[in-house]
Each structure stands twice: as structure tokens, then as C-alpha cells.
Design a binder for these strands. Sequence first.
DNA 1: TTGAAAGCGCTAACAC
DNA 2: GTGTTAGCGCTTTCAA
Lengths: 334, 334
Amino acid sequence: MAVTIRDVAEHAGVSVATASRVLTGSRNVSPVLAQRVNDAARALGYRHNAVASALRRGRTNTVGMIVPEIENPFFPAIVEAVERRLQGSGRDLFLCDAQQDVAIERHRARALANRQVDGLIIVPVSSTASRATLVEVTERTPVVQVDRYVQEYPADWVGVDDQHGISLAVEHVMALGATRVAFVSAALESSSAQARHAGFERMIERNGLPHDTPRLLGTFRAEWGRAAAIELLAHPPMPDAVVCGNDEIAVGVLGEFRRKRVRVPEDVLVTGFDDIRFAQLADPPLTTVRQPGDQLAAECIRLLDARMADRDTPIQRVAIAPSLVIRESTGGSS
Amino acid sequence: MAVTIRDVAEHAGVSVATASRVLTGSRNVSPVLAQRVNDAARALGYRHNAVASALRRGRTNTVGMIVPEIENPFFPAIVEAVERRLQGSGRDLFLCDAQQDVAIERHRARALANRQVDGLIIVPVSSTASRATLVEVTERTPVVQVDRYVQEYPADWVGVDDQHGISLAVEHVMALGATRVAFVSAALESSSAQARHAGFERMIERNGLPHDTPRLLGTFRAEWGRAAAIELLAHPPMPDAVVCGNDEIAVGVLGEFRRKRVRVPEDVLVTGFDDIRFAQLADPPLTTVRQPGDQLAAECIRLLDARMADRDTPIQRVAIAPSLVIRESTGGSS
DNA sequence: TTGAAAGCGCTAACAC
DNA sequence: GTGTTAGCGCTTTCAA
């Protein structure tokens, strides 16, 4: 069997209490004994059993995080930012991937909650089908939603103002003279897809754009962008601009346009959303709505800590204003 | 306090032993009592305490995974594949990001081991500096290395034959007539960087290519690819082909070449490694060495299960042959 | 088939 | 400053 704190205590000639105090860094131990305990621990190769500790203390110094799909590069970026924020407080982040499936999401959420994470950060897969999971887990653990949220259930959230983000993109292409503006995004499953779509509709309305302007809704994937581009090309007239629901879609659109010799930005303008790393490496570099990952992460940890400190603190929903990054896919900056 | 199994037992009028048997799915309980226990659990909102369970059983039904850098899109792809493989056996995967830092990597490895994961999958950051962590954690937990491995320490590993992969790329561009072949890759910190570099050197040797052919070693990032391309352009003669250590680098190289109006593949051929999702969306679509993620994942889980079943099973090192995917960055296929 | 009871390893009262 | 001890919630002998 493995070395326990009892073995260490014996070896050091002290009680388990003292050994525990030393090993957990309590100040109330004489330096002499502390030294003996530390030596014993090293000599025996003692390893802290976090499971036993967690059972006893009811805390684990770990935070769980669930993202809908780790392959969407926007999420790793957020994860990284969260990790960095967590660094300072010495907590570990355990990440889970829901694989776009609310059943898996629920399973992971339970696994994390069952293992007593001190807090949970979640980007819900669906604005409706993830609700039950969120409700269940919120009863047991402090939870903060990031980026996406669940409908009709009050819970902390931090994200960007998606509607505003899309309006930045639409206004930008309109200012460049576009009148026929297509929208290519994901089906209205997640709150971000919904909000971005709503933002687009509002712009259509407000600016009196033609009501038959194309809205193509599929997934947040490049393959869909490609398919949507084919669709657009098949049904003239071509739009002057294609506003995409995220960068992946936009990259797919760009790829297909390139293949068909449709020139961007000369023939059509294209915009994305998120500003993932590849946005600036696309051809042409992609004009996009930037989500400030570091700010999101900072705010997210702030909310989580607040809720961990007081389960009854008022619910907060923080929307950060995104910004437009202009690159060559709409004619370039400077 | 939360509902415990004791509450459930009381409510159902049975002993905690029986309640436990029902809740863990043991067959040796009369249907009547089983029903009563399940009803009680539902009525009270009982939640399994995985921490207590883990302490008692010494198992957790979870697998930990540590990747060097979640932002490198190759790793999310592997994670996904591993997740899917794990699905069947009902185990949860907890993922950690080492942020390219061996100190963080060690911290995460300990956190996972301390929390009694049943097994650990790791892509070590460094072939030397990660060794201590690997040794430590291997003493406590079944561990399998994927993709990268640690030098001078025998432990299970599964990955592709990087040397062979690079030789596929070099042979391909040479078959297309390239004689001046540059190599742009990462510093020789990780085993993959080392093996790919070694593969390149071997090809130089074997084919009598000029010894002063450029080798530029930086990081596995697109920014480095970009910088390296600038470097290549600054020091003529330009190579006929640029073989890159991974796709990200290649995408950076392509981006810079595009900016400088260097035509690919007319003026110079470019190849990558990994076949990440964006490889085919690059401009031009990238010829690359494909790592078969699903196979890696399958083999990885197989090794892990073997080691979990028998800690003393012989060490296995499995190298899967990668394949070349030819796209337009070297002139295209068919 | 069921129940009583002994811990898993650790921490935190509480007493000295 | 140090030790004794009672659990944290669960699973699993062992006995009935």
C-alpha cells in the first residue's frame, strides 16, 4: 500500500495531527518537528492523497470547465486564458469536452460535481437542452456560464454582446457600400447563434435592407461555410457581403470563393466573428469581430470567486463590448 | 448538508449496505428493496459522492490527460479521438493544459495522480525536462505517452514514425524536382521536433543534398513560420521547397509568401505535418503528413488498458506509419 | 438476500 | 505547541 500520513508521523515520531499540520502548511508547529516531518515525508516518498483530503475538507482546490467542442479553436483560446487567471490562486483546472452533445455534457457536469470541484465554468451546448444540467449542477456547485448561456434560468454569465458584434460587422460592410448582405451562421441551438442571428435581423430591419437577403444557418464549422458559399453561388444575385457567425465559417466561405475564383474583397466582402488565431492567416486575412478572451476569462474568474464566497450573491450577467478588427477580407485597414 | 446514502437508506427502510448495493448496481438485492431504494434516492435528490467512493474503492473511473498546449490544434484533435474511444467504457476524461511549461505540467500531473485517476495519458512537453514528472507519476499510476515521449526512461508510447513522415515529405518534393530543400521546424525540445529534424538530416545525407541547406528551428507556431519565411527570403538563393515541422508553421510560411508575392507551388513548394483541420483550408491547400488521430487514440487506450490490467506488462512503444496527403501547395494531386 | 461494522486517509475540533 | 479522536460518505467483508 502507499505511504500515508500515519507512516510519516510514525517515522518522524510525532502524531498524525502534527504531520498533517506540517504537510498542509500550518504555522503552529515548532520548526524542529516541522523539519522532522518534512524529512520523513521525503524519506518515505509520501504523496498527498487529495481524495481523502477532499472528503474531509469538502474542498478540492480544483475548478472544472466544460466546453461544447474542444476542436472549435475559440474554446482552447478561452481555456488558456482561464488557466492563466487561475494560476495565481493555485487551483487546478480540469477540462471536459461535451462533444456537442447535451447527454455527454450532463455526464461530464455530474462527474465534475460528484468529484467536488469547488466551482464549474461551462459553455452550455444548447440554450434549452442544457438547462436541466445547469439547474442540477448549480444546486450543488458555484457555476459560471461563459460565452453561451441557457435560456430561462437565472445564472451567472459572462460573454460578449453578440448582437452588438454582428451590428459592427454589418455596419462596416454597409459603410463600404454593400446593400445585399448575406448571413451565414449556425442553427439557433446555442445562445450565441441566436444572439448573432437576432443582431443581424435587427440590422436588416433598422437599415431597410431587402427582406429576402439570404440567411443560411448550419453549424459553426468551416465545412458549413463552404457549403453555404456553394449555395450562395448557386442562387444569384450574389451578395455584396457575407457576414459570418464565426471565423471558422468565414474561412470555409473564403476557401470556396477562392476555388470558384470569386475575389475577396473585390467581388464580395467577408467578415467573421471571434478573431481566432487563424483569422489573420486566412487568405485574405479576415475582418472579424474580436472577442477579448483575456477579459472574458478575468471576468469569469471574478464571478466564480464571488459566487464561491457567497452562494447567495446576486446573479450577474456581464456583457463585454466586442470590437471590429478590419483586415483585407473587407478591403483592409490603414 | 447534502443527502447521503445513509439518508436514502433510512428513507427506504433498509441498511446503508443495501442502499449502496442498489446504487452501485449490484445484482444481489431483491427487486422490492431495489425499487424502494431507487425511489428514496429520487425523492431525496441523492447525489453520489464520488470522492468518498474513490477513497473507499481506490478507483475513480476517470482518466487524466495532459497536453503541452491546448491551443495547438493538433492536440484537441487527439483529445477528441481519445474521448470517443473512452466513451464506450464509461470513463470520464479530465484534461489539463501544461501551457508549454514543465513546472505546470508537473503540477497538473500531481494533481491528477493525487486525485487518483485510474490512468494518465500524457504528451510530454520536453523530452528531457519532463522526465522527472513522468517517472514520479508512473510510480503511482498507469501512464501512456502519446505523440511525444521522454528520453531515457522506458514507458509506454504511441505515436507516428516522425522520421518516416518527414522523409515522405522530402521524397515528395524531390520527386517534383526540388534540390534545395529548406526545413522549418521547432527547437529540439520535444521528441517530435527531434525526430522530425533527424528525419530531415537523414534525407539530406542519403540523397546527397547540399549540406548548407537551411534548417530554421523555432517554435511549432504560425508566427515562427512567418518569421522563418522572412529569413529565407532575406538570404537567397531561395529554396525550391520548404518542408515544415508542422502545419501551423507551414500556414505561417504560406501567409508570408503570399504577402511577398512568392507563388506556391510555382516558385516554391511547401509541406506541413499533422494534417490539422485548417491544412485543407489554407491557401493553397497544404500538402502534409497526416497523423491518423483515431488510430493513435485507439492504440493509446489499448496500451492504457493493458497497463491498468497489469502494471508489469511489458513496455510497448508503438509507431504508426503516417501517410502523405498531397494538395496544391506542392502542385496538387490527381 | 440483508445488515452491522470496519475502515479508506485525512483534517479539525478539542483537550492538554 | 502537540496529541487524541471523531468523523467526511462510501463500499465491502463477514455473519446471520
